[in-house]
Design a protein around this nucleic acid. Sequence first.
DNA 1: TGCAGGTCGGGAAATTTGCCCGACCAAGTT
DNA 2: AACTTGGTCGGGCAAATTTCCCGACCTGCA
Lengths: 217, 217
Amino acid sequence: MSAVGTSGISILLVDDHPVVRQGYRRVLEHQDDFRVVAEADNAAGAYRAFKAHQPDVVVMDISMPGASGLEAIRNIRARDADARVLVFSMHSEVAQVKAAFGAGASGFVTKGSEPAELIAAIRSVVRGEHAMSDDVARVLALESLVPTKSALDELGEREIEILRQLVAGATKEQIAENLNLSTKTVQNYHYLIKAKTGMRTDAQLVRLAVECGLANL
Amino acid sequence: MSAVGTSGISILLVDDHPVVRQGYRRVLEHQDDFRVVAEADNAAGAYRAFKAHQPDVVVMDISMPGASGLEAIRNIRARDADARVLVFSMHSEVAQVKAAFGAGASGFVTKGSEPAELIAAIRSVVRGEHAMSDDVARVLALESLVPTKSALDELGEREIEILRQLVAGATKEQIAENLNLSTKTVQNYHYLIKAKTGMRTDAQLVRLAVECGLANL
DNA sequence: TGCAGGTCGGGAAATTTGCCCGACCAAGTT
DNA sequence: AACTTGGTCGGGCAAATTTCCCGACCTGCA
């Protein structure tokens, strides 16, 4: 799955800040088996560049306008299940980390990390492993000790119930009847739920819900 | 979740043949803690009766006109995840048994079984267990030893691939691009797939595909 | 008192769905 | 060789749905 005709690790760099890209390109190319083969400054461009270059790894900042970084990861992974995406973010909020891995990322490194950590993470993910910087690991570990906030936690009670029935296979009309709502309201909730969870497709939504244990009760 | 104000087990009997209902009503009410609180002769009626009576268990023949028994089960379970449905069928074909459990049934007894088996199964499912008559268990066990025909077997190669990407979370546009098709064709396949598998909702389709191991490649 | 947030639905334009149809092509038929 | 069968691909078109945005009503809470 590595790029044809050359050895070393080919990299696609995605960040909406040109200066940041420059800086990291410099850092990465200091490793002589690393090659930054393309750059992109938005989700759509990232996807296009991925298709064009098939890099060994995509290093991506997901806090881009439109919060579409996750979308880009999903797109890339939907196209090629072997794709490796290492997200490289400002913050290490649990929700964001989980969302990233949920979208198919292979690693998560914060921008506060040492360059060496980023480099190590890149090598790690191209080997097929998962990687994250220490600070990320720490918040995640800590978080796993408490009740666990899932991606569904920002949903209200009504939204959860509607999602549950949706996932159970009920049609909107049936849900409307079950809950004594208008079909329109159920449609609005459905839309809202997708917006809140960041899922674009019903399929994504169903799988998220199933993973969060919302299925079969 | 049991009916208010009374002890014993309340039952909703669903079968399109009045005589059969009569016969089984007789048999069931011979148990003095059983009460047949309602009857229905079709899927829609079953759903309505369920809503009206909230029986402890629904005993249902699924070979009704329109093959809508499964639909009825799904409706009932979507409305109340605690609902118990015991299907009571003429045949014990693997596909039908699987479809029934897939739709949310808690038990499956053939009409060839002894009354005692039906009664035992009813007690079993109200206790929250799963139950099936010996003959059903036998075909199912036997079937689990061979390659397994899934509900997806009637789908062609193209259909499978499109379903796979759909379930992976890709949008129709992305699929169209990945496979070099027009969006319209992907839409048509999506429609066809739902028709062939008998799934009415995307959610149902996704869960079917996941159960058939189509997820994650 | 006022503000935040959950619940419920209308409106309207853009898209999608449901269903049917025709065309092409490869593989068999007898 | 003329024919059927079945998978693949897409147009058409009315009906339904989605996507956003907005207003209204509660309730809790500062």
